[in-house]
Simulated assay, not measured.
Amino acid sequence: MTEFQLVLIIASIAAFFTYLGAPLAEAFEVPHLVISAALQFAAGVIMALVAFSLMPPAIRLGPLTWVLGAFFVGGLLYVILEYVSVWALSKPDLAQDNSASLGLYIGILVDLLIDGMVIGIGSTLTIKTGLLLALGMSISTAPLAFVITATAKRQGVPRRRRRLLSFLFIAAIIGGAVIGYLVLRNQSLEVRLILVALASGFLITTITQGMIPEANKEGEPGFAGVLFVGGISLYALMTLGLQ
Rank of each mutant, 00 (worst) to 15 (best):
W66F: 13
Y181W: 05
P92L: 09
V191F: 12
K128W: 13
I80P: 05
V229S: 10
L189K: 11
A37G: 08
G69R: 00
R154I: 03
A100F: 14
F72N: 05
R60S: 15
I46A: 03
Y78N: 07
G122M: 04
F16V: 05
L112M: 15
G219D: 09
L242E: 09
A48H: 02
K153Y: 06
S85T: 14
R154W: 05
P31Y: 07
R154D: 06
D111I: 04
T124A: 11
P63T: 09
L131Q: 01
L49W: 08
A51E: 06
I148H: 03
G225N: 12
Y235N: 07
P23F: 08
R161W: 11
S99F: 14
M117E: 02
G230Q: 08
M55L: 15
E3G: 09
P57A: 06
L164P: 08
V7D: 10
V183Y: 07
V30W: 01
L125D: 11
L64F: 13
S233F: 11
V79W: 07
L68W: 01
T65M: 15
L240S: 10
A152I: 04
A95S: 12
I212Q: 06
Q209P: 03
L193Y: 06
L237G: 08
T2S: 14
A236M: 08
L240E: 11
M211A: 11
K128E: 13
P221E: 05
P143L: 05
A14F: 04
G136H: 02
G156W: 06
I9A: 14
L24D: 05
R154H: 11
T124P: 04
E214L: 07
S36T: 03
L49K: 07
E220K: 12
L164R: 14
G107Q: 03
E29W: 07
A171K: 04
R161K: 09
G116I: 01
M47V: 14
I108E: 00
N186F: 12
M238Q: 12
L189T: 13
S12T: 15
L125N: 11
T208I: 09
S138E: 04
Y235W: 14
S101Q: 13
Y78V: 06
L182G: 12
G230T: 04
A224N: 05
L198Y: 01
V196E: 02
A95K: 13
M1S: 15
Y235F: 15
V34G: 03
I10K: 00
P213K: 10
G225R: 09
A177K: 01
L195G: 07
F146V: 13
L61Y: 15
E82H: 10
G201M: 00
I121M: 15
G175P: 05
A42T: 14
